[in-house]
């Protein structure tokens, strides 16, 4: 499949934005200024971006605790995200949610989620809305290998098939749920699970943007055409700890170094598009520089932004009460 130059450039920028956003958070978190839990998505960028490049604002996604990448890929503004992570009133959730709850319904982002397996049922509902309202939208659940074992996830696979929903279930398989390997925690295979619920299954290498884009394109087209749900199994590597502060003693010493060397989606993308003569390296360097400026500005702004006010504590529990 030919991908438009414009799409490629946008995708590269999104992946670079995620990478720099997360690397910066890694540094800032260590200073103690960022409250709460932070789970970084570095190494997995091509999954969110390759999938979301096939979506519009009219489509819906649900994310996980490791949600920054999905947010950026779906178009949530970096400044608002950073401010949220710093607990500022200018944050996308006004400082009420933090890293694990970034949501922006206006661009079809149903929220990161603090509950593992929280997203797939919501995506059945979003898909039901798209189907009932006939708006042509598709709903996509991102969830981890760990979350793939939750009853809520397995029930959602069944429900989506039973209702023939325009839903795509993206298993982001980075091999670990916290400190436990998927090889221990996941019985059988994701493929057999998809088959068990009567839905097509596609898998791809999550460090290859083009592979994800292609596979997600097929899955999303299938769902959009009313042919029912699809499972997309993306093989990934996470480059940092489960959360910031995790020493990762459960991983072989060279596992992350190898992943960084051989499975860096940004490096692979660059090589591919420059060798194909689609972009000059300098064009991509310009993107990198622009993204670096954007992240720097977001951090400076977030640190300077106002804190929530005491009245905010009571606001927005209900629409009306």
């Amino acid at each position: 499949m030919q991908i438009a130059r414009e799409t490629l450039l946008r995708s590269y920028r999104a992946m670079r934005t995620i990478r720099m956003f997360e690397e910066r958070l890694h540094v800032e978190f260590a200073t103690g200024e960022i409250p709460g839990f932070v789970h970084l998505y570095c190494g997995e960028e091509a999954s969110a971006v390759g999938v979301c490049a096939n979506l519009t604002d009219n489509d819906t996604i649900a994310s996980t605790h490791r949600g920054h990448g999905h947010c950026i890929a779906k178009g949530v503004g970096v400044a608002g995200m950073m401010a949220e992570i710093y607990g500022r009133s200018t944050g996308v959730c006004r400082g009420k949610g933090g890293s694990m709850h970034i949501a922006d319904l206006a661009c079809g982002m149903l929220g990161a989620n603090g509950i593992v397996g929280g997203g797939p049922p919501l995506i059945c509902g979003a898909a039901l809305s798209h189907k009932t309202l006939r708006d042509g939208g598709v709903a996509v659940a991102f969830y981890g290998d760990g979350a793939s074992n939750e009853g809520s996830t397995l029930e959602s696979l069944n429900l989506a098939s039973v209702w023939n929903l325009p839903a795509v279930f993206v298993v982001e398989d980075n091999g670990y749920g916290e400190a436990t390997g998927a090889s221990y925690a996941c019985a059988g295979t994701q493929q057999a699970r998809a088959a068990g619920f009567g839905m097509p299954y596609i898998e791809c290498d999550g460090s290859d943007y083009f592979a994800v884009h292609q596979a997600a394109g097929e899955a999303i087209a299938h769902a959009r055409e009313g042919k029912g749900p699809v499972m997309l199994h993306v093989h990934l590597q996470r480059w940092y700890g489960h959360f910031e502060g995790d020493a990762m003693t459960y991983r072989a010493a060279d596992e992350v170094a190898d992943a960084r060397r051989d499975h860096d989606c940004l490096k692979l993308f660059r090589t591919r598009v420059t060798e194909a003569g689609l972009f000059e390296g300098s064009e991509l360097d310009e993107v990198d520089a622009a993204v670096a400026d954007e992240i720097e500005a977001a951090v400076v702004q977030a640190k300077d932004d106002p804190l929530p006010q005491s009245a905010d504590l009571l606001a927005d529990v209900y629409v009306r009460y």
Binding site: G175, Y176, G177, E178, A179, T180, G181, A182, S183, Y184, A185, T249, Y250, R251, A252, A253, E255
Partner: peptide, 21 residues
């Protein structure tokens, strides 16, 4: 419980990686 030891199935073969979160 989840990761009451931790490290099962991981590439390092480390047991008791966490001992709970």
């Amino acid at each position: 419980g989840e990761d009451v030891a931790g490290g099962r199935g991981g590439s390092a073969g480390t047991q008791d990686a966490w001992g709970g979160v």
